[in-house]
Design a protein around this nucleic acid. Sequence first.
DNA 1: GCGACAG
DNA 2: ATCTTGTCGC
Length: 221
Amino acid sequence: MPLHEWTLSPEEAIALQWRLAPRVECRDRIGDVHRIAGIDIGFEQNGEITRAAVVVLAWPGLSMLEHVVHREPTRMPYIPGLLSFREVPAALQAFTLLNSPPDLVMVDGQGIAHPRRLGVASHLGLWLDIPTIGVAKSRLCGTHDDVPPRRGEWTPLRDGDETIGAVLRSRQSVKPVYISPGHRLGLETAVAWVVRCLGRTKLPEPTRLADRLASRRGAFL
DNA sequence: GCGACAG
DNA sequence: ATCTTGTCGC
């Protein structure tokens, strides 16, 4: 499978997504969780350099176990729906720098809440063959009702007759986050893990810390 | 044809 | 994503 061919045309990328989507698993196939990773990508030099950051937190406790950063030249532009082709290559390189693989990964972006059900979290999960959860700050596709105001409450994100994710109130009076299964777990399990990793901020700790490391803002120790 | 559009 | 300080609100 030519998953390593990242310099694809939009047409080729879309064709590849249609072929890979059927491989994504949304049934729980997740073992004991002791290491939870957060991954995010940032850019430097006017976007010419892609910076992938991965943090690994302990469960329970959420203490920092590892954190790595990988930089490389940016190869693809950002195109809605094709985000994974721009970010996954660098993310995979970053994962090779870890001392041991995580049991669960939270990704900044959508999982199956994607036009072809293959958002960046699903694509990365398929490649790593590790359970992944998509944690996005905004909507790509699908519709939903208003989200209840209480922290932890959520409403389903739907596309036609399919439920593709959850719009979660991770913090009161703050815009909700879009949660969707990436790979090897279902929606309920995905939401449960995100809620468990929630601090007082909008984003769960894994993604929040990876975000800071990727964009090199503030200290996170 | 006219919007919408993860990061 | 990124450029960017202080400021309003919960």
